[in-house]
Amino acid sequence: MTVFYVLMVFMIIGAIVAVETKNMLSAVIAVGAVGVGASVIFLFLRAPDIAITQVIVEVLSLIILIRVTIRADNYAIERRQDNFANIVGLVFVGLFLVFAFWAYKGLPEFGNPLMRVSSSYLREGTRETGAANIVASVILDYRAYDTLGEAIVLFTSILGAFVILRPKGRKHTSEKDKGSFGIIEDKEIKGSR
């Protein structure tokens, strides 16, 4: 149990560093440290499937984030402290903690789930689906609808990325479109590189 608390403190420190640091690259690396901590926690909870997925997705997202931040301005914009926003944020966090304390009192203990449906999956899973990996039998047989939804979510995100980033949409068709929608002149962009 202590190892969870150590990893949890490590992840919280990483998250605070990611929010508070001024350098964008260090923020990205701190986010990566949080992801590695989550992956080790999954390993200790005996969920190797999730641990593999977590660590490999973390690597890919780190590559993409570093590629994005390495060109951009490397320093966050300075802004003045807003006391009212800080106080309101603290009040809402406090309210959330109070209600979460009440709500979580009714939940079962950590590591002792209720196991009504899932116990039947554990007993019958291999016999009913023929898959030795119980996770595969759940996500691709009992709960295949959810996996289809996940695939559709990924598909939609790719579609969005291609539509937003496509080169044709950036060209203005006529002279009067310039400036009216905040389109930057091509020459300015070329000159700044």
Partner: peptide
């Protein structure tokens, strides 16, 4: 379907 992993994790490996 036999060892830990699956389509999503393996797919991310291939893309990497």
């Amino acid at each position: 379907h036999i060892t830990p992993g699956g389509g999503f994790a393996g797919g991310v490996f291939i893309s990497i």
